[in-house]
Amino acid sequence: MISDLTTRIVMAAWALFMLSWALGWLLKGSPIPIYRVKRFGQDMVEDAILGAFWLAVGTSIFALIKYLASSV
């Protein structure tokens, strides 16, 4: 049950990353002359990138652990 939940959360995380990425660029690239909105868009993109980075790192590490554990 937990691993099922984890898979769903991973998928949701990737989807949210893409959403945040898109939303972030949307805000950053929008023709609104308000600096704070543009800045928020950039922050969102940065968070999305960091999230994707940790997602990738985590997936790799856990996969490596799983591989090591099964091969030992």
Binding site: I2, T6, I9, A13, L16, D47, L55, G58
Partner: peptide
């Protein structure tokens, strides 16, 4: 261990969430 992985991905999910 499964709970730890779940926790990790929850963290990542929250990282990527587009809510300020």
């Amino acid at each position: 261990y499964s709970l730890a992985i779940l926790t990790y991905y929850l963290g990542v999910l929250i990282y990527a969430i587009p809510i300020p």
